[in-house]
């Protein structure tokens, strides 16, 4: 329950990002503010401060002020409020995590059910496709796809996704983890199919669609529910890794991963820029994993902690 509360809290504060940025802190989280200034302790100070010691090389953004409405976590190298970006970034991270998990689980259910139930050629085809995706080293697949898609966008027939669209990381991440969920589902369906009640339904001449919908799906649903929060956590971590490698969310959009990436260029001088989004990921993913544990206890106590064995 605590996990759920934490999640709701994170989601709510992230959803309030525009409220915070516009009405409280009065900052624009996406526009550069290089010669910007801010008011603190009775003085106006520059957001980006040139080094004055030694040879005077380098420019550093202002560090955390710990004033909640005034550059709480300081500014990044563009002079943007890190805390506001953290909230906006959370929106994208959560959005990518949940939608890609939804797509992933949906595709996995379809392919797992089809392969497990129909068997034969369909099973062979689906299983080989899953094998290929599975054996392709995850990050390599994601990076290879991203390098191209982020560069040139994606265009097949009427479908056109712009380079830099959030849909790209969502789809890429969803696709690479399909086998992770589909393979155990396929196994569950195969065992289910041998059970009497399914055999009886087949014998009674019910259509495949009806059997899948009425008999099989309700029986795999608990496993799917258990997988879902785990996949959200997993996908958020993957998204952050992709953004770290520069092939995830594209600017000016921000996700926790991209903020970490921005922050790594300031790691030695302003470590909080990278630390804060990392902590947010740990908290959110941790809560999701706890939630997954809770779901397992509630719905499917025998489910494996990790898929695909």
């Amino acid at each position: 329950m605590g996990a759920l509360l934490v999640l709701i809290f994170v989601a709510v504060i992230c959803l309030c990002a525009p409220l915070y940025a516009n009405d409280w802190a009065h900052v624009n989280a996406f526009s550069s503010n290089i010669n910007g200034r801010f008011f603190i302790d009775g003085h106006w100070r520059s957001l980006l401060q040139a080094n004055t010691q030694g040879l005077g090389l380098g420019v550093s953004p202002v560090g955390p002020t710990w004033h909640l409405n005034n550059y709480f976590l300081g500014a990044d190298s563009q002079g943007r409020d890190v805390f506001a970006r953290l909230l906006y970034g959370g929106r994208d991270s959560l959005l990518i995590g949940t939608t890609s998990a939804l797509i992933c689980v949906l595709l996995a259910t379809i392919s797992g059910l089809a392969a497990g139930y129909f068997g034969g050629v369909i099973d062979w085809l689906v299983s080989r496709l899953l094998d290929i995706t599975w054996a392709f080293p995850v990050y390599l697949l994601a990076i290879s796809l991203s390098v191209i898609l982020v560069t040139s966008g994606f265009s097949v027939g009427p479908v056109h996704i712009q380079a830099g669209s959030l849909l790209l990381p969502i789809i890429i991440i969803a696709l690479i983890y399909v086998p992770y969920v589909a393979r155990p589902l396929r196994g569950i369906v195969m065992t289910l199919k041998e059970r009497e009640f399914i055999q009886a339904a087949i014998g009674s001449g019910a259509s495949d669609w009806r059997i899948l919908r009425k008999e099989i799906l309700p029986n795999v649903a608990p496993s799917i529910i258990v997988f879902f929060p785990l996949m959200v956590a997993f996908n958020m971590l993957t998204e952050s890794a992709l953004s770290f490698l520069g092939v995830g969310v594209q600017p000016p959009n921000a996700s926790w991963g991209t903020i970490i990436n921005d922050g790594l260029d300031l790691l030695y001088s302003r470590p909080w820029v990278a630390m804060a989004p990392g902590l947010m990921i740990v908290i959110t993913a941790g809560a999701l994993n706890l939630l997954g544990d809770g779901f397992r206890d509630a719905f499917d106590p025998k489910a494996k902690l990790r898929g695909s064995i």
Partner: peptide, 13 residues
């Protein structure tokens, strides 16, 4: 749970 929720590269950094 905390350990599986940490981004690998971030922990490294």
């Amino acid at each position: 749970i905390a350990a599986v929720s940490v981004p690998a590269y971030w922990l490294g950094e």
